[in-house]
Design a protein around this nucleic acid. Structure first.
Lengths: 332, 332
DNA sequence: GTCCATATTGCAACCGGTTGCAATATGACG
DNA sequence: CGTCATATTGCAACCGGTTGCAATATGGAC
C-alpha cells in the first residue's frame, strides 16, 4: 500500500542512497539524478517516512505540547498560536493532556517512547517538577506561561506576575479607589502568590488605602462567583483585582445577582484579556497578557535549545498592559 | 544517552529477541527470563522506542487530531475530551491546525509521513474533501461533529442538525412566539443549511407563524453582533434561533446596546451549550450538543475502524436537548 | 531413563530510511 | 590527451526494534 524508498530507487534506476539524498537538503546529488528520482517519486506518490528516518538522524521533529488547562478559554487561543507556530517551522505537536496526572515520570516515559525533540509546557499551574523531570531526561524544555523565579534551571517565558500586581494597584489607585481587594486563584498557585505580592508591595506606599485579600478555590467562573457571594455578605471593597478574567466574570455575575452594579458600586479588574472579555456584554477592564509574543518567543527559545541543549537557562518576561473597558470607573 | 534494547539484552545476559518479547504482551517468554529482563530494564531505565517498533509492526498508536476551529470555546472542551479519551486507550494525538489550509493533499502527506494509525477530524466546518482525502489515502477516518449526509463514504458522528432545527422551531412555538427568525452562520456551512432547513420544515405546518432568515459571516461573536445590529434597524422578530452560542451572545450584546431586553423584547435560542452559556450573566437558553457522548463514540468508531479498515461507513447521530435558562420567555 | 509434545530461545532477516567510505565519473587545466 | 581535484554514486553497515524459523530446553508419560 505505502510506497517506499526502495521502490522509487528501482523505478528511477538508481541506488537507495541516491533517492535518500535527493530528499535530503544539502546532500550531494547531480541534477540528472535528482530529476529522475523526483519523477519516479511523483509517479509513485512517494513521501519519505519521517519516523524511519528519525531512527538514524535522531530527530523526529515532534514536540510534546503539554498542558493541564483545558477549561480557561484563553488556552484555546494559546493552542492555536502554538500549533500554527510549530507547523510553520515543520514541527509537529504531540498534544499531552496532564489534567489529573500527578506523576511526572509517566509523562516523561511516554514522551521518550515517542522520541520528541523537545517539550513545550504550556501552563501556569503545572507543578515545576514536571518541567524539571523533562529536563532531567535530557529533553529540551520551555515552560511557557510559567513562573520565572521558581525553577531557574528550566527556560521560562511569560509575564512578570509581581509587576502585574503592581500595575493593578497603580491602576486602581489612579482611579481614586481607596478600599481595595485582591481576589486570587488557589492560594497554592504561584501566579496568584506573585500577583498578590506585587499588589501589596505597591500599596505599601499608600498607608491610607485599605486592602484585603481572598482566594477562590480554582481559576474558574463558579469559584469566582461563589467567593464573591461570600464577600458580599460582609462589607465588600470598592474595587477588586482578580487573578484571572474567568474569575472576574464569575465575581461580576455574583455582584449583579446581589443587585449591585459594576462599576458604579464595585470595580473589577481582570487579568489575561481573553477573547470573551472583549465581548460587549462582558466588557471587562483587564490586564492583557501578550499571548502571541509569549508563544512565539517560547518557540524560538525551544528551537534554539534544540540546537544547543546546554544553553544556559533563561527567563523571558513580557510587559503587560491595561485594556480599558467598562468594569472600572474612568480616570478622573 | 538513551538506553536501547541491546544494552538491556547484554546486561540481562539474554538475546535481543528475548528482551523484545518480554515487552510484548502475549509473547512466549519464561518467567525466569522475563524477570531478568525486567530487572535489567529497571536498572538501566529502559523504555522501548515506540517509533522503532512501529517500523515492523506497522502501528504507531498515533492519531491525527485535525481541526480548524480554534476560536469557538466549545472546542477547548472537545479537545479536552479527545485527548483524555485517546490517552486512556494508549493513543497519542498529533494535533493538526488546519486554519487557512485549503489543500487536503498537504495534510495527507504530512500525516502519512508520520504514519498515523487514524485521523480524527474534529470540525463541523472543514470541507468534506479533507476527510475524503484521508480515506483515499487508506487511513481510517472519523469526522466528529460533521454533517452526516454529505459524505456517505466517511464515518460521521454528530448531531442531526435538521432535527435540531425542528426542535428549535417547536421550542419557540410552544412559548407562544409567532414572529420567528433564523440567524445562521455562514450560508456555506452545511450545519447552518441543515438547521435552517429543519427550522423551516417544522414551521411549514404553522402558516400563521411568520419566519425570516439571515446569516452572519462567521460563527463568531462579532459577526453575530453586527448582523443583529442591522436586523434591529428594521422590524426585528420576536425570537431568534441562532446557529451557535457565540453568535447568540453577539446578538444579545447588540440587542442590549439598542436598549432592548432579552427575553422581554426579543427571545434568543442558541445551540451548543458551551460552558460560557451557563455563566449566570449570560444565561443563554440553548440546545445542548452531547459533546462527551459524541467524542467517546467517535473514538470507539475510530478504534473499530483501525481493526477493520473496510468497515462499512456509518453515521452516528445523537439527540440534543433544550437547556432552559433565561433568554426565552417561559412556557405558558 | 527414554520418548515426545510443547515451551523457550537465539539467529538472522527485515521494517524504511541514513551515512561513512571507497569507487567511479566529471570537468578543468596544462 | 593525460592528470588531478572535485563531484557523484553505490555498497554495506547501522538506527532500534520485531518475528519466522530452526534449535534447544523442559516436563510429563511410560
Amino acid at each position: 500500500m505505502v510506497v517506499t524508498l526502495k521502490e522509487v530507487a528501482e523505478r528511477a534506476g538508481v541506488s537507495r542512497s541516491a533517492v535518500s539524498r535527493a530528499f535530503t537538503p544539502g546532500a550531494s546529488v547531480s541534477d540528472k539524478t535528482r530529476r529522475k528520482v523526483e519523477k519516479a517519486a511523483r509517479d509513485l506518490g512517494y513521501s519519505p517516512n519521517a519516523l524511519a528516518s528519525s531512527l538514524t538522524t535522531g530527530r523526529t521533529r515532534m514536540i510534546g505540547l503539554v498542558s493541564n488547562n483545558f477549561h480557561n478559554p484563553i488556552f484555546l487561543s494559546i493552542f492555536d498560536q502554538f500549533t500554527r507556530g510549530l507547523q510553520a517551522r515543520g514541527l509537529r505537536p504531540l498534544l499531552v493532556n496532564l489534567t489529573d496526572e500527578v506523576e511526572p515520570a509517566n509523562s516523561v516515559r511516554m514522551l521518550r517512547q515517542y522520541s520528541v525533540d523537545a517539550v513545550m509546557v504550556a501552563s501556569s499551574t503545572l507543578p515545576p517538577e514536571f518541567s524539571q523531570a523533562f529536563r532531567d531526561a535530557g529533553v529540551p524544555v520551555v515552560n511557557a506561561f510559567g513562573r520565572y523565579s521558581s525553577a531557574p534551571d528550566v527556560h521560562v517565558v511569560g509575564i512578570d506576575n509581581v509587576e502585574c500586581g503592581r500595575m493593578a494597584a497603580r491602576t486602581l489607585i489612579a482611579r481614586g479607589y481607596v478600599d481595595l481587594a485582591f481576589l486570587g486563584g488557589p492560594e497554592a498557585a504561584t501566579s496568584t502568590q506573585d500577583r498578590q505580592a506585587g499588589f501589596l508591595s505597591e500599596l505599601a506606599a499608600h498607608p491610607d488605602v485599605r486592602v484585603t485579600c481572598s482566594h477562590a478555590r480554582a481559576y474558574s467562573f463558579e469559584a469566582g462567583r461563589e467567593r464573591m457571594q461570600q464577600l458580599l455578605k460582609d462589607r465588600p471593597a470598592q474595587a477588586y483585582f482578580c487573578g484571572d478574567d474567568v474569575l472576574s466574570i464569575g465575581a461580576i455575575s455574583a455582584i449583579a445577582d446581589a443587585g449591585l452594579s459594576v462599576p458604579d458600586d464595585i470595580g473589577i479588574l481582570g487579568l489575561n484579556d481573553m477573547e470573551v472579555a472583549g465581548w460587549e456584554n462582558i466588557a471587562l477592564t483587564t490586564i492583557r497578557q501578550p499571548i502571541r509574543e509569549i508563544v512565539n518567543s517560547s518557540i524560538e527559545l525551544m528551537v534554539a535549545t534544540m540546537d544547543d541543549p546546554d544553553r544556559y537557562p533563561e527567563a523571558r518576561l513580557f510587559p503587560c498592559s491595561i485594556v480599558e473597558r467598562k468594569t472600572l470607573r474612568p480616570l478622573p
